[in-house]
Write a protein that binds this DNA or RNA. Structure first.
Lengths: 119, 119
DNA sequence: GCAATTGGGCACCTTTTGGTAACCGGAGGG
DNA sequence: CCCTCCGGTTACCAAAAGGTGCCCAATTGC
C-alpha cells in the first residue's frame, strides 16, 4: 500500500495537490478583495471607477487583486479599444456565486451591528 | 447643516463610528480565523484539540484569534475547573450564523475545484 | 507642442501577520 | 521533589501585505 498524500489528506485536489478551500480562503484574505467582488456585483466597472469606489485602495494593490481574481476565474477583464482604451472588469459566473455568499456576510454584519463588540 | 460623518458615510455604525462590514471582514482576515469557526461548527473543543485540528497554527496565534472572537461575541470561553483545568470553546448564536455562511464558501470551493485555477 | 486621461509597472518603505522558542503557574502523579 | 499536562504569555525574527511616489505608453483635446 502506497501511503499517498491523497490518503492522508483526502480534501486535497487530486490534480493540483492543493486544498481548494485553502486556496479560496487565501483568495479572500486581502484587505480589499471581498469589497472588490462586492463592487462588481453591481455590474461591470472600469479600473479607475473601482479605485474611487473602494476609497483608499492603491492602484498597485487593485491591479494585483484583479489579476489574481482573473487567474482564479472570478473576474473577466475586458479591454475596450474605444477612445479612452479603458478596461472593464466584470464577474464571471463563479465570481458572482462567490459574491452572493459574500453578500450574506455583509447582511450578517448589518444584522449584528447592535452591540457588535458586546463589550 | 452640520456635515457629519454619518451624512458622508451612512453605513457607519452610529454608536461606534465604525463600519460593521469592515469590522467583520477584518475579523475574518486571519490565516486561520475561518478554519477556527469551521472547526467549532462541529461542537465545543478544547484549546489543544484546536491546535491539533488546525495543523500548523501556533498557540500564540490561536489564543489571539480566540480572544478576538470572544471579544466580538462569536465564541464563548468555558473554563472547566476539573482535573486538567482545560478550557472549552464553543460558538455563540452569532458565531454559528457566521459559521454557516462560511460553510457555503467551503461548499463553493469544493464545487469549483474543477479547474479552479483555470490556467 | 503640451497637458490630461487611463491602466499599468517598479522601487522603496512601513505595517501587519505569523512562526519559534523559551518561560510560567497550577494541578496531579510518582 | 521532580516531571508532565494544559493554556497561556513574551521576546524575537521573517515574510506578507499594503502604501507612496515616480515612470511609462497610447490617445485625445487645446
Amino acid at each position: 500500500m502506497k501511503d499517498t498524500a491523497q490518503d492522508r489528506q483526502p480534501w486535497l485536489d487530486p490534480v493540483t495537490g492543493t486544498c481548494p478551500v485553502g486556496e479560496t480562503l487565501r483568495l479572500l484574505r486581502g484587505k480589499h478583495g471581498p469589497s472588490v467582488l462586492h463592487c462588481l456585483m453591481a455590474g461591470e466597472m472600469h479600473f479607475l471607477e473601482l479605485t474611487r469606489a473602494l476609497d483608499g485602495i492603491s492602484r498597485k494593490v487593485l491591479t494585483a487583486q484583479l489579476q489574481e481574481f482573473e487567474r482564479s476565474g472570478l473576474v473577466a477583464r475586458i479591454e475596450k479599444h474605444d477612445a479612452r482604451r479603458r478596461v472593464g472588469y466584470s464577474l464571471t459566473g463563479k465570481g458572482a456565486d462567490l459574491g452572493a455568499i459574500l453578500s450574506q456576510i455583509f447582511d450578517w454584519s448589518q444584522a449584528h451591528r447592535d452591540r457588535a463588540a458586546t463589550r
